[in-house]
Amino acid sequence: MSVSSIDPAQSALSAPEPSTFGEEGEAAKEIQGRSPWQLAWARLRQDKVAIGSAVVILLITLVAIGAPLIAHLVGHGPGDTYPFIGEDSYGLPIGPNRTFLLGADDLGRDVLVRVVYGARVSLIAGVVASALAVLAGGIVGMLAGYFGTAVDTALSRFMDVILSFPLLLFAIALVSLVGPSLTVSIAVIAFFSWAVVGRIVRGQTLSLREKEFVEAARSLGASDLRIIFVDILPNLVAPLIVYATLLIPASIVFEATLSFLGLGVVPPTPTWGNMLSDSLPYYKVAWWFMLFPGGALLITTLAFNLLGDSVRDALDPRYARLFKA
């Protein structure tokens, strides 16, 4: 009885096709083949939150790309220390002023320039790690889900093992072995994220594999490879995009955490995480030192999360019926 109010709408919307013979004229008036992607795009464009988040993300990206330009304009490099004009007579960081628009840090470096450079690390780490995780998770999940039986058992157990790994201990151990760097950070993040994606993709593939259209392809003599790429993958792209957009902010936070703990990118390269870490002793006297990197982190992750939610809503087929002509 839960569907009582949905039913009539569904049936109503399934109807407005012209009959098959003798009505070609009517057909021409109709919208020509809008793909599910086009529909999702149309929905996304009407979503103010999505537009807002996308604009914020675009701005952050532009700022990150243009970081050297900003540094040039301000006249301070990201690693330049200004112990005399950046710190007061007690050696404490100086607040926002005309030289240091967002203030200076404990070593007299420009917070603005460092935040802007930090965006580069965050975005690179977030995007690259998410992409790797989605790629690895997608492939493993699809193989496990499609082939089932022994392949599935082996791959699923492997994912279980990874998901139950103590990730910080692992990260500390790895870093003490090979030393911290952006590459290591990305590898660690991707390594701990792909299994989640893999599990989801496996579940989706399992259900897709049982769909009649896959059976139809098989009855036509399609090879496994063709079924995977032509029939299954296109149906996985939507959830993969959603997970990628939601994985990016998680990866950014993950990277910031590693940097905060000194396990990520090595100083003096600025990251939001190591800036926050450096700012800790000064939070009472230099609010700008903590606020701006923290704020940047918050705004970036929030924008990605909101965009991810919007993308999911736009791609969700449950809403498709509302937009059928």
Binding site: P36, K211, E212, F213, A216, S219, L220, D231, V237, P317
Partner: peptide, 21 residues
């Protein structure tokens, strides 16, 4: 040999890949 044997399925929704033209 599959050319010689074809199937028509029950579910008019499930038997067509929604992402393909």
């Amino acid at each position: 040999l599959r050319k010689g044997i074809q199937m028509i399925f029950q579910d008019p929704i499930g038997s067509l890949n929604p992402r393909r033209r």
